[in-house]
Design a protein around this nucleic acid. Structure first.
Length: 586
RNA sequence: GGGCCUGUGGCUUAGCCAGGAUAAAGCACCGGCCUUCUAAGCCGGGGAUCGCGGGUUCGAAUCCCGCCGGGUCCGCCA
């Protein structure tokens, strides 16, 4: 309901400015939400220098007209205004919501859901995320990528976009080449989860390569040969590769599945080489005259970037960046918006990618860059075996969550406790990853992650469990609470009874969910969503403390049950946007 | 050396792009609240020269310049 209120404020403000003969240059009405009012406009500040008047007096001028418009709208009754009043506080013009705003918020949630913004309007988006090399298990760095990407996908789906998530599989890189080479001469541990088994071989293979002191670098050339044969499509080698890559990917998929993350499509980069797409890109660039040769290698000069970008090796084989160009062109033909999630180390590469795509006449992707995740002992390295695998982390965090559940709920069955621990543990992990700005560099401390944060996901899930428990108890007493299924039952409920301070605060918080989502989908920022979820839980907990539901007298009890129902619904909706499950009890 | 990111209470952060009402939260710390729907909760308290120095402005955590600290990238790797 907030977006409608905001539109109304914008409209009235524009009319009032016009009548007061002020012209807001540019379109900004300087609206903001804050602690002082439901919406505040700072337009008077912006107008002051131009009209050579103190902002306070400008605010008064505008306010006069606003009051007139609001009063007329209120008198007309019919379609009631969502604004109750406007007031000036010095230079600020404050707008406050009306009772019908509060009531309409609840009816809106019962009728259709709180956060269904139609902004996306069916536009197709492809989000590429995770895309870890299939040479070992995911570690916490990949996790940040995967969780940001998946959450972004959920935000956009909720905002009305048609989203496809893709995992770009780098099956032609040296890393995978080394893993495949390793698999051909070392014994693979069949009992281990696929990704961990491959990592073992990958690490061992790297050791062999490092230790190879033969003057001809025998091992190195074996790997090179393998890579050339793969690029050429040598059947036997392709089979070898497939075995290694698939085994690893199965393990990775299993890990992602535990985090409620899935990809719609896995795209192998090798397809772009074999289909000739990479070749066509190179030819196109050559025709455009942007290519330089150095020996038999091909280099591409990009404006503003000093270094030339190598797009083909001297031996004629392709490089990551070139394959990525082909991949992005392919993607761009299949969607309206392309979003990539990259770590900071890919920043330069992504700029090169962007410029090269523009050269080819392809619309470049929107790129979300996230900062590094390092360990207290230093940076993560799969090759050196210096990483905390995602599996290990999930295992530990679930065990820790189990301890917490067990401490509080001795009464529950073992299976129930396990289930709650899983939801709480995964929730804590996901919340942790999206609650800070992506560009922030984070040092991952396992102890901190295990110290399940009080005001993180479990806090929000707890509020949901409390709401659920009230509704459960109501149902047990034979009270009808299926407001959503049975909208008629709403007719008899007087939601106007909900005017306690903490009730109003809760309703207002419910109303801005759509606004939070809209911002998230346009800015591609997630931490405000995490913050909103926490605040919603907070106002619910205050309501819970101050307003007894089941013991309230009849009509008020009905109204409060509606509010609890709505709160539970939005809590579970925002948690689902964050990819976090909503336990019925905990 | 050059590019990009970052520096806000003891710790972790929000606010910075589009400058404005007493700098906002969480953790930790101190004190209070379970005879009413789960205390993973609620209420209260202390604690910040917003890295440093200049500048622009009626007004700067926010914009500009310089410096300092931390990170990262600059491969015929991905």
């Amino acid at each position: 309901m907030f977006l409608q209120f905001k539109r109304e404020v914008e409209h009235i403000l524009k009319v009032a400015l016009d009548r007061a003969s002020y012209e807001p240059r540019g379109q900004s009405l300087e609206l903001e939400t804050g602690e002082y009012a439901d919406i505040t406009s700072r337009i008077a500040f912006a107008l002051a220098p131009r009209y050579r008047k103190p902002p306070e007096s400008i605010a008064q001028d505008i306010l006069l007209h606003i009051n007139e418009i609001v009063a007329r709208a209120q008198a007309q009754g019919g379609r009631r205004t969502l604004i109750s009043k406007a007031a000036a506080a010095g230079p600020y013009i404050n707008f406050y919501v009306s009772d019908s705003y509060l009531d309409a918020t609840l009816r809106g949630i019962i009728g259709g859901g709180a956060g269904t913004v139609k902004r996306g309007d069916g536009m197709r988006v492809i989000i590429e995320h995770t895309s870890a090399n299939p040479d070992g298990p995911l570690h916490i760095g990949h996790l940040r990528n995967a969780i940001i990407g998946d959450t972004l996908a959920r935000v956009l789906i909720h905002s009305g976009y048609r989203v496809e998530t893709q995992y770009y599989v780098n099956d032609m890189g040296r890393q995978v080449g080394i893993a495949v080479w390793g698999a051909s001469r070392l014994k693979l541990d069949e009992r281990k989860k696929g990704d961990h088994a491959i990592a073992e071989i990958y690490i061992a293979a790297n050791r062999l390569l490092e230790a190879d002191s033969s003057p001809s670098h025998t091992y190195q050339s074996e790997v090179d040969a393998l890579m050339r044969r793969y690029e050429a499509g040598d059947e036997e080698v392709v089979k070898q590769y497939e075995e290694v890559v698939q085994r690893c990917l199965e393990g990775i998929k299993a890990t992602l599945h535990r985090l409620n993350i899935h990809h719609d499509l896995f795209v192998f980069e090798s397809r772009f080489v074999r289909s000739g797409a990479v070749h066509r890109i190179i030819e196109e660039l050559r025709r455009k005259g942007c290519i330089k040769t150095e020996g038999s290698a091909l280099l591409l000069h990009l404006d503003g970037i000093e270094k030339e970008l190598v797009i083909q090796r001297s031996d004629g084989t392709s490089l990551y960046t070139t394959r990525d160009l082909a991949y992005h062109r392919w993607k761009s033909e299949r969607c309206d918006r392309m979003i990539d999630i990259f770590g900071k180390d890919h920043e330069l590469v992504s700029q090169q990618l962007r410029k090269a795509l523009l050269l080819l006449g392809v619309k470049p992707p929107e790129i979300v860059i996230f900062g590094f995740v390092s360990l207290p002992s230093g940076s993560i390295s799969t090759r050196a075996g210096r990483y905390i695998s995602a599996d290990e982390l999930i295992e530990q965090i679930e065990a820790k969550a189990y301890e917490e559940v067990d401490k509080r709920r001795r009464d529950l069955s073992e299976a129930k406790k396990r289930e709650i621990a899983r939801k709480v543990g995964i929730g804590a992990l996901r919340y942790d990853m999206v609650k800070v700005s992506p560009e922030k560099h984070i040092v991952f401390r396992l102890e901190d992650a295990l110290d399940i944060e009080k005001k993180g996901a479990p806090f929000i899930q707890y509020a949901h469990a409390r709401a659920s428990s009230i509704l459960r108890a109501a149902r047990e007493r034979g009270i009808n609470i299926d407001f959503g299924l049975d909208t008629d039952s709403m007719e008899t409920v007087d939601v106007a009874l909900l005017r306690d301070e903490s009730e109003v605060a809760l309703i207002k918080k419910l109303a801005i969910f759509e606004y939070v989502l809209e911002n998230a989908s346009s800015e591609l920022k997630l931490h405000p969503v995490a913050k909103y979820a926490r605040e919603l839980a907070e106002v619910f907990n205050i309501f819970y403390k101050n307003c007894p539901v089941l013991n309230a007298e009849c009509a008020l009890r009905e109204a409060r049950l509606v509010l609890v129902y709505c709160a539970k619904r939005v809590l579970s909706e925002v948690l689902s946007v964050l990819g976090i499950e909503s336990p019925e009890e905990m």
